[in-house]
Computed example of a mutant assay.
Amino acid sequence: MPTTLPLPPTAECYHALVARNAAYEGRFIAAVRTTGIFCRPTCRARKPKAENVEFFATTREALVHGYRPCKVCAPLAATGSDAPAFVAQLLARLAADPATRIRDEHLRALGLEPATVRRWFLRTHGLTFQAYQRLYRLNTAFKQLQSGSPVTEAAFGSGYESLSGFQESFRTVFGAAPSHSRQQQVIDLTRLDTPLGPMVAAATAAGVCLLEFTDRRGLETELQDLSRRVQAPVVQGENPHFGPLRAQLAEYFAGTRRNFTVPLHTPGSAFQQQVWQALTRIPYGHTRSYGHQAATLQRPQAVRAVAAANGQNRVAILIPCHRVIGADGKLTGYAGGLWRKQRLLELENGQPTLFTDKK
């Protein structure tokens, strides 16, 4: 498996992508949410808006997240001039017919040694050529399901020979049965920029179910738990709730919005729901102690439980857990960092100009 360097910061990656900086070849892969395509840094295709791009360290990560390789820059080909000629040949065949299965006997018929092909893909991209084909077929099927195709059509149309094999592979990659991905729901995931740093937002058809700063500890685990609770896979993509969310957050940070009207979808226990509802009743510009919140819920002895449920809130800012402070008036734990909590409280007390400064 190739050795990968740490992924550069998002802003640095986007700057390199716009500049088509060849020095970043091999450092990141750019995935475009609006097209479902991933590219190398030097791709000649039209550059997307920053909010529509996310970056991965490897092509494998992009594939697992449901993206397909760009036909313009061929990101699965080697970044140097030593790319074997067979790479372009094989990728062209798959692009022309995603349902095709290029087996070892087909490779030999093309004059290629299967072990050579396998080693090259594994060394360059961290997955074998057969694994790449499987992901490519699944990604194709997923897009078909999302557009309303029946499961059987998506399965056989993407090259699977049995429904059971398709369903097992689909569940392994996407964490849900194929029928769930269309008939039930999907958790759409996007990134958005704020004056306090980038955030991750997730939403179902019912409403926004997650809004967290990207450097929150345990964010990946939180997304996995959310997927389990909603019984839906998390996929990159737009959602009707993201537009209003972006607009209302911009108004909030500009100091012109005090209340949010974006629908929320917050799965949790009955007690957690009570705690989160109590948070939304704390007026803009005011703070409450954990003890006050416990008393509000008529659970004065449950201060620690209230504090724990407060910390399990997945929807920052909209469910204003930042308005809860210690009994002594000091700021206490906040998943986004105490400095952000301080800035949010300052904003709500009439100091929006602070957001023109750097941390």
Rank of each mutant, 00 (worst) to 15 (best):
Q130V: 13
S289N: 04
C13D: 00
G285V: 03
A141H: 04
T172F: 14
F121P: 01
A155T: 03
I325F: 09
L63F: 12
T332F: 11
G336Y: 11
P8R: 04
G66D: 01
L110F: 13
C43F: 07
A95L: 07
S81I: 11
Y284V: 03
A77Y: 10
T100L: 15
E153V: 15
L211W: 05
R323W: 04
K71L: 14
D82T: 14
F86L: 05
V208A: 04
P263K: 04
P84I: 07
F271I: 01
V306N: 00
Y290Q: 03
V151N: 00
A62D: 01
Q144K: 11
G336L: 08
R304H: 13
V306G: 01
Q146K: 08
A305W: 12
L347V: 02
Y160E: 00
L318Y: 02
H286G: 03
I282P: 01
L192V: 03
A295R: 11
R134H: 13
G336F: 12
K330I: 05
G326A: 13
F129W: 09
V151C: 03
A23C: 06
A270M: 11
A22D: 14
Y284A: 01
A141M: 07
T266M: 14
A11D: 12
T194G: 02
H241R: 08
Q351I: 08
E220M: 12
Q277A: 15
P198V: 04
Y252L: 06
Q185A: 05
L345N: 04
L211G: 00
R119W: 12
E161K: 13
K358P: 10
G333Q: 07
P98A: 06
H322D: 01
P9L: 05
D215M: 11
T4S: 14
K49D: 10
L135Q: 05
S179I: 13
P69I: 03
I317S: 00
H265F: 15
A50V: 11
V303K: 09
N313M: 05
Q342V: 06
A11T: 11
Y24F: 15
E113T: 09
V117T: 03
F271T: 00
L127P: 03
G326M: 08
K341A: 06
D188Q: 15
K330P: 02
A232M: 05
Y284H: 13
Q312Y: 15
T172M: 10
A254M: 05
T10N: 05
I319P: 01
G26F: 09
F55E: 00
A85Q: 13
A250S: 13
P352N: 02
